[in-house]
Write a protein that binds this DNA or RNA. Sequence first.
DNA 1: GTGTCCCGACCGAACATTCGGTTAATCTAG
DNA 2: CTAGATTAACCGAATGTTCGGTCGGGACAC
Lengths: 194, 194
Amino acid sequence: MTMAKRDTYTPDSLLAVAVEVFNERGYDGTSMEHLSQAAGISKSSIYHHVRGKEELLERAVGRALEGLFAILDEPGAVRGRAIERLEFVTRRTTQVLMAELPYVTLLLRVRGNTRTERLALARRREFDQRMAGLLTAAVAEGDLRADMDVKLATRLLFGMINSLVEWYRPGAGARADEEVAAAVVRLAFDGLRT
Amino acid sequence: MTMAKRDTYTPDSLLAVAVEVFNERGYDGTSMEHLSQAAGISKSSIYHHVRGKEELLERAVGRALEGLFAILDEPGAVRGRAIERLEFVTRRTTQVLMAELPYVTLLLRVRGNTRTERLALARRREFDQRMAGLLTAAVAEGDLRADMDVKLATRLLFGMINSLVEWYRPGAGARADEEVAAAVVRLAFDGLRT
DNA sequence: GTGTCCCGACCGAACATTCGGTTAATCTAG
DNA sequence: CTAGATTAACCGAATGTTCGGTCGGGACAC
């Protein structure tokens, strides 16, 4: 029994609207009035679907973290030489970031003002550490330059990937997205120089 | 006749305090009460030194932009092969970012909610375009890989540099700072691989 | 006629900013 | 050297506004 199309909101469809506005104005810069206008329903109606503003943030960052951590369980991330796993995770992280752009964008901008935000920051740090482990392994296997601090390299690599949220906009097609992911991997591992 | 040291605030010394708080809590997440507590003076006293919250933001992003644009006028940025100028600007941008960290951090987090913020965003875009011009020239001179979209490469390069504001913390000494700048240049131009 | 979805009216709290002053240091005239 | 004027720096209390959230009720589908 498939449900007929509804023009009412579900918590998730409302979330999609809210996250767009959060990313445009910043979470703290967004009022419930802003959200209600963007969603086309009244402020009070929002509270019919979600408990409040913070629940929207919680759902959004949760979804982003879910997508990112799932990468680490994919076969390409657990088998093979460290450098191959690292390249895989780099490419997949870029792809997930593009696919879940609004949610990841919000995740990368939380500042730690509330418990929800601090929890998100902790999970992000955990992901970073898993990544740093891959770098270390790849250096040990002799496939990565040893003349650079691993933590520093991890941060720069991540910084490059995460910067996608500042400029990437979807809609140019799967081909274009593939090109972006490939460029990230190429730049990270082989550099800009001829 | 040098002025004796005063323990009172000037607009600039107050700015330094304010920017720290802005970066910790986010601009929109910071109340004047937060600022007054951090500065150790009352809320109303802040208005003796600056016109309001937005003037503090204005001064901060102005200072950051000043530092960044100054790089483009330095000799190393106007003379020599394009790739050398590009490497110079990459290194210098990293250094300025570290030296003016709190101000640049604030600049990079501006969302465009007010006229002040939109002005800052426009100036940032201008800087990016100057940078993209250097990339294009370096490709034309055959020193940069041609198999990557220039705009894409510019954004990734910048994303890597700008990500410093997320993790770099000063105080490890000039030697350590030099190492960071060198790592950025090496990673950007030669990649991670052995 | 009950549950889902929505609304306008409303609330207390927090917000940026203003106002009417006080304090303490500096300057100025005799 | 000092009394009086001036000023920068500051404060507590209050202003109007906006905030996130609540409430009681209406429409309408099943």
